[in-house]
């Protein structure tokens, strides 16, 4: 890993972390756990498209681990990690299919992320009661995913120089 790549990754991780922590301060609009904008996914997706797959994974995992340390919510680490990894897998699968329609990838990622969180919750709580939330989470994933996806699409159009 050369110096430029290291610096870019570190910088993007810092960006993602700042966005994550600021977002955590916004009071939840809908009182259902797991529903939020997921703005830090903008950084993950952008780095995936502009810099590379490996870098995106590094940034994603670092952001999740550091994010839960800084926001003081260690208990949510397992949920974020499970969601994040599934989101990354979805990114790898779908980016070849959707091509330049990044917003579609983003929506599919958001759906994968929330599915991962629900699966983690089912295992942690050892109860299927959390499945009640799944339809709500699916709706929110589509809306927030499209929103962040459109942002990423615009960044990628203008930010090719980042590489």
């Amino acid at each position: 890993m050369n110096l430029k790549r290291l610096t870019t990754d570190a910088l993007l991780t810092a960006f993602a972390l700042i966005i994550f922590i600021i977002e955590a301060q916004i009071p939840p609009v809908v009182p259902i756990p797991g529903i939020k904008l997921g703005l830090s996914n903008i950084i993950t997706l952008t780095s995936f498209y502009i810099i590379g797959k490996k870098d995106a994974l590094i940034i994603l995992v670092l952001r999740i681990v550091l994010g839960s340390v800084f926001s003081g919510n260690i208990s949510s680490l397992i949920f974020s990690l499970c969601g994040g990894i599934l989101c990354y897998i979805a990114m790898c699968i779908f980016h070849g299919i959707t091509k330049e329609k990044i917003w579609v990838t983003s929506v599919l990622c958001a759906i994968a992320h929330n599915t991962g969180q629900i699966i983690a919750a089912v295992f942690v709580m050892k109860s299927t009661a959390v499945l009640w939330y799944f339809p709500y989470l699916l709706i929110s994933a589509i809306i927030t995913g499209a929103f962040t996806g459109i942002i990423v699409q615009n960044i990628c159009k203008k930010g090719r120089g980042l590489k």
Binding site: P33, S75, F79, A121, M125, A129, V130, W132
Partner: peptide
């Protein structure tokens, strides 16, 4: 119907 879940 439904449930209230406190994850922490």
């Amino acid at each position: 119907v439904g449930s209230i879940v406190c994850l922490p």
